[in-house]
Amino acid sequence: MLRLPPYQYHRPGSVAEAVALMAEHGDDAMYVSGGTDLVPNMKHRLFEPGHLIALKGIDELKGIEELPGENGDGGVLRIGAAETLTAVSAKPHVRELFPALAEAAAHVAGPQLRNAGTIGGNVCLDTRCTYYNQTHFWREALGFCLKKDGEVCHVTRTGKKCVAAHSADTPPVLMTLGASAVLTGPSGSREVLISEFFVADGIVNTRRATDEILTEIRIPLASATRRQAYMKLRQRKSIDFPLLTVAVAADLDENDAVRTIDGVVTGLGSRPRALSKWAEVAAGRTLDDALIDELSERAYKQCHPLENIIVDPEWRRAMVPVYVRRALEHVAGA
């Protein structure tokens, strides 16, 4: 068997208790939710925490419900971080308001993994790389790499930067919906926009401090009026991580002209990439073939996949405009 390193499993009953356990064990502890990312990574000796602090049993981290707005904003849909991807994808509430999110959640991994994996874990997912998600034996034969145990990056071939790929399906959609994450740590809670949550560093690609718990996702209910699309490129129709994920959301006016439009792609670099200058180009125009062409072309120019994933980067790059176009067509036709 592929053995796990030894650890103690803690099952706190509350967020406060979990944060306290983390304070007690410090660097030797990690939070675990569904474990579908962390457990394989531990089996590969990418992490060897002596203490796992389980979040799944904490009631505060559960629930999918609408919260009324404060000071005139329109309220949010709150999704507890420990809700499973199955729950997120099946919940009628999510499907009606944010169909792209339901779709994204329904396309993560395979059915059993979605029954265990959580949305919090998906947002906090470790980055992935062909030189990293391997056994200890394999990585040792390679000579390890910068992200773990080694000195060089085999993708960029320098020692300076890790470019492992952000590979989670839901964050791009959450970004286009203007969602935020609530993080709770020893010094209280803070809310961070998902679009500002990620940083371009493959080693640790989020702004979450290691002792902070992502407690919930909040999606502005106002975003429910946006037209949304989600597309995933992968070689098999199940189980596989994305080679490319595209999320698009747009507000159209009564004449079907674009008021605002957002596109996010991931599966390429260390963080999801918000496609730039879309709004400027598209504002006031209808989403016709010409505009779709223009936006897809912009996406292509902005994306430069690397060999962090073992699949042909040139092809992956060529797929960016194809999938962006399909997503835009979906939005235009929806």
């Binding site: 499993y9 099952r11 675990v32 474990g35 579908t36 457990v39 389980a54 799944k56 993994l113 265990a116």
Partner: peptide, 10 residues
């Protein structure tokens, strides 16, 4: 559920 990824305590 995948039992190979489930810590027994879970």
């Amino acid at each position: 559920t995948l039992s190979c990824l489930t810590p027994v305590w879970e």
